[in-house]
Simulated scan of single mutants.
Amino acid sequence: MSLKQLAVIKHLCLVRAPPSSAEESPSADVEQRRGCLEEDLLALLESGEAADVTLRVGRRGGRLAVHRALLLARCPALAAVLRVKGVRPAVFAEVMRFVYTGKAALEADSAGEVLAAAERFSLPELADRCEQLLMEGLSIETAAATAVVAVASCRPALTSAAVELISRHAPQVMGTDGWRAALRDHTEVAVRICCLVSAAAAPAAVSPDISTNPAEDLNWRLLQAAKDGAVEELRVLLAVGADVETKDEYRKTALQWAAERGYAKAVDCLLSSGAEVNTRDRWQLTPLHRAAERGHQDVVTVLLEAGADKSAMDNRGRTPLYIAKVINRWQVMDILK
């Protein structure tokens, strides 16, 4: 291994994800150094040199050598994982390329899968890029598949665009392979899309008010508000009938999303509205697991005060404390002990 690569490994823990648009733009010198670092990191990912973790991906258990320190810094949701299910190896490889370099060579055919994976692994910037690509490629042929991804991932703008196109070209869209696949593989989401299309097609003199939207739309908005930590919107949605226990394609509730993203006030709001504190997602992870994994001390405290089960185990037998230990969330560990 070269000295340059050793230097990269030494500084992996200091590497952070690329800044969002809200952050101050880096200087030209910083951008130049970042470009070199990105090339080094991509070379490490492709070569597997100095990797200390091997992930098994997909049904056939394809293997990918990665560096745990970098995952801790850029994608904690993957730092304690050894087996990644429900994601095609090619899609996961693109996700890891983004984690390492902040860049992704996205293709229209796989953008929906990458978006779903980005949401699952808490990579909002990658999810936004996928959404933009899907928006640009929206057509009669892609409308159904795009709508499924948009609704399942709680993407308001993309959902609105896809639903509008479907409502204007319903016969053509419903004759596509994408629509048949949606009905076959994503029945519940397809029913939600039908409700949204029906509402969009209904004659109305003015834009529909929140109180007149169908229940499915309210529930979808609730999940998005939880992801954004929008407490006031959560209160309004719950007041007009949104289901606090509604779940997305990953069986995540609004409480799980708010806990994972560190919104303590949103967590408190949802708990006050009757959210189940020990609800479980597809992987049997509770909100406490999610908050501990991300190191959100305030959220962990709120959940414990609400009666969260510290001994709850996920489908791999891991407790919140165990996950916190594995990825070195020391301050959270002290709260959980």
Score class of each variant (00 low, 15 high):
51 A>L: 01
35 G>F: 01
110 S>T: 14
41 L>W: 01
71 L>T: 06
59 R>P: 06
76 P>Y: 02
48 G>K: 07
100 Y>C: 08
60 R>A: 02
73 A>V: 10
66 V>I: 03
66 V>M: 00
87 V>W: 07
67 H>E: 03
69 A>C: 09
45 L>A: 06
85 K>W: 11
85 K>S: 15
48 G>H: 02
80 A>T: 15
99 V>R: 12
50 A>D: 10
103 K>T: 13
42 L>W: 03
70 L>W: 00
52 D>V: 01
41 L>H: 09
95 V>T: 06
84 V>Y: 09
49 E>I: 08
92 F>Q: 09
46 E>I: 08
32 Q>V: 14
98 F>T: 11
63 R>I: 05
60 R>Q: 12
55 L>K: 12
62 G>A: 14
100 Y>M: 07
44 L>S: 10
68 R>N: 08
25 S>E: 15
43 A>C: 15
105 A>M: 08
41 L>Q: 10
57 V>T: 03
40 D>E: 15
93 A>H: 15
32 Q>K: 14
26 P>M: 09
30 V>R: 12
82 L>G: 14
106 L>T: 10
40 D>C: 08
101 T>S: 07
88 R>C: 11
50 A>L: 05
79 A>Q: 01
56 R>S: 04
101 T>R: 05
109 D>Y: 05
106 L>Y: 06
50 A>I: 05
33 R>M: 13
74 R>F: 07
102 G>P: 00
78 L>Y: 03
68 R>Q: 10
78 L>F: 04
63 R>V: 08
42 L>P: 08
65 A>T: 03
82 L>C: 10
25 S>H: 14
65 A>Y: 00
103 K>I: 09
28 A>N: 14
109 D>W: 04
71 L>F: 01
96 M>I: 06
72 L>E: 10
57 V>H: 03
105 A>S: 12
64 L>H: 04
111 A>Y: 08
56 R>C: 08
115 L>M: 10
56 R>V: 00
50 A>C: 14
109 D>I: 10
91 V>M: 03
109 D>Q: 14
51 A>K: 02
115 L>R: 05
98 F>A: 02
107 E>C: 13
88 R>P: 13
82 L>W: 13
113 E>S: 14
53 V>H: 09
89 P>L: 08
112 G>M: 01
96 M>K: 12
51 A>I: 02
105 A>R: 12
47 S>C: 09
77 A>P: 03
64 L>C: 08
73 A>E: 01
106 L>A: 00
